[in-house]
Design a protein around this nucleic acid. Structure first.
Lengths: 209, 209, 209, 209
DNA sequence: AATGAATGAGCCTTCATTCAT
DNA sequence: TATGAATGAAGGCTCATTCAT
């Protein structure tokens, strides 16, 4: 149906990821997907709007996933683990969305930026809440400032877009498990950590599978 | 000495950070520092070169710092700690360079990109080597894949450019200590961790100072 | 009958008058009257044709009125008066046609322009003939060059489209009478003017009614 | 010096007059005067600004002339005559400005329109004042509504831009004298009119010279 | 009779870059 | 060393028009 709209988005994702938002012209996009300028502007009011749609598609999906992860588990450790895993796995589906999201948000027009910021803040808040809850319940080390720790976790995970290549050397499953391992070691208290499921055996098991 | 060249760089840094490389024209740069187009092209062959100079200034400085940190200490744990601390502290001096470095490297022309890539890889290699050395000497958990762990550390630290604000809520010292704490907890083996200097008392001491 | 065609014309008249022919797109026209692009092109071959239709509707009507006025009276003075009055009164019915006619004729395509020019020249000729007849019969001052005088009369009347507002301060009747008064004072010979019906009493009577 | 700016204006005047503002592209303008697009935008912020400059040049000049005419004479009749003559004569110098002024003002951007409207209203006010003064001093027929009469005079004169051709059949001097004759016959009282200088001999003298 | 997705030519504008001075 | 007028390629966008349905 609105086949063309989807094709435009796919083409622009590929091209934006490779050459950047400003490195790709509308002409190049429509040539890449065999359409015309007029076709583009039939579905988007502007190049800015296309950028927004890409941003929104991604952040909406991720936010949804995080909410699901949060609701599925009861204890903070498992919640944190689930959020991280779900997020890392998004890289296989949304790699190019993510690249655009983190690389080009500077160029979102003010109105669009605000809309995106709201959802991005909600996502951050999710992480913070889980960390706080973990500390409150004694699972996470209380000495850690929640916000810096949260941003550290986000940074570790987000940065993946800079180096992860699908079908590259590193499997997304492996990355996911290492990140979980690193983060749990970082934040869990000694006691929690020494339960079977969160010590080295966790990663070991995964790595061998 | 060439006062104007420096002024151009400073102005472009301010403007690039705020509006992005493509959001700033040569005109805006020279107006911002009270010069003329002719003046700009007297010192730079192109806008691309200016972008390169900014990249190079930064990566050269950081690489130098990392080398110093590596040479100052003998055991991997202290080396890692020193590298991280030195890098985080760069944010106070080179915040805008960093923003440009991570935001705009897509737009480096191929020749320039290669030059920058070399130095950036050297820096990454530094981290990997320290991690490897740590595992070899039994200080770091050997189960961790060096590269993923290295990229996780880099991600955590690099991401800071997205949210750190000078004179903002979070002090750069505090951030630095929390990052070190998180990373050491992630990678140190149980035994190494339980030495006095690397357990919670480390962060606790810092936080109280 | 073809209801849509009429609605398109009405909408385009409103919009052209306000924003000019080039300030209005086909899209805006069909949105304004709740139709579609396809609907538009079902009734018009092109936007140019729509412009022509508007021109032609107006000039045909006015020409008809002028011919009627000419045939109704015998003496030139009354003919001139009737033509002017009938023309001025058209403003209430055809205000927007007139605006388009005088504002946008530049943009008529050559073929259409020629068709319109013919009728417009006929209308001009009507005025010239009456003026000439008036001079021949001794009612109008012979010293006046017919063409310049005719264009002066036309200018005075046509210009009204620039400032007349329906339901505005000035009543169309009043305007009409003042114009007739001015023109008759301009062209009538002293003797003709001093007949009761063409001196100040004429306007005075009208103004009091 | 700013030779190019003047050339651009001249070219655009010629082209706008012939094809209308929307019928001429920046490309055509710069080709016509042997310049480049960049050159155009060095002197004008936009095509809109060029349109404004043309409007302003003209109305400023005409307003100045009208003020001079007003100050040179004492009695309203002579003032009116002088204003009309000065205005009509402008057609030889500013024919194309005038065409643009009356044809394209619809397309002035709001801010520019306001600036132009102010001066245009001042000019209109000049005419109204002279007419009022003429009535007050008993030279002009008091029964005439000042505004309608003023607009009639303006219309007669302005309309000239639609048909006057330099070096055409009609000499600008002749037009000017006929207009003055028509208007004075329209507005002067019987007594004033029958002074030697304002009766038919006026025009007759002129026509023979 | 009417729809609206799709086209593509053409428009205004921006901007890095050059060069005579 | 520094200026700024001038260039021209390229970009985003508009819009009249077509056509399968």
């Amino acid at each position: 149906m609105t086949d063309l709209k989807e094709r435009i988005i796919q083409s622009s994702l590929e091209l934006f990821e490779k050459h950047g938002y400003h490195g790709v012209s509308i002409n190049q996009i429509v040539e890449h997907c065999g359409a015309s300028k007029g076709g583009f502007y039939h579905y988007f009011h502007s190049k800015d709007e296309l950028l927004y749609v890409i941003h929104d598609t991604f952040i909406t999906y991720v936010l949804e996933k995080a909410n699901q992860a949060k609701q599925t588990y009861n204890n903070p450790t498992e919640k944190l683990q689930a959020i991280i895993e779900s997020f890392v796995k998004v890289f296989d589906l949304y790699k190019s969305h993510i690249s655009v999201f983190y690389q080009e948000s500077t160029y979102l027009k003010p109105d669009y930026e605000e809309l995106i910021k709201k959802k991005r803040d909600q996502f951050k808040q999710n992480i913070f809440e889980v960390l706080q809850e973990g500390q409150d319940k004694g699972e996470f080390r209380s000495i850690l400032p929640v916000e810096i720790t949260g941003m550290a976790v986000l940074g570790m995970v987000n940065w993946t877009y800079k180096w992860y290549r699908k079908n590259g050397e590193k499997d997304i499953e492996e990355i996911s498990h290492v990140f979980v391992d690193l983060i749990l070691h970082s934040v869990l208290t000694g006691e929690t950590l020494h339960q079977d499921r969160y010590n080295d055996f966790f990663l070991q098991t995964k790595m061998n599978s």
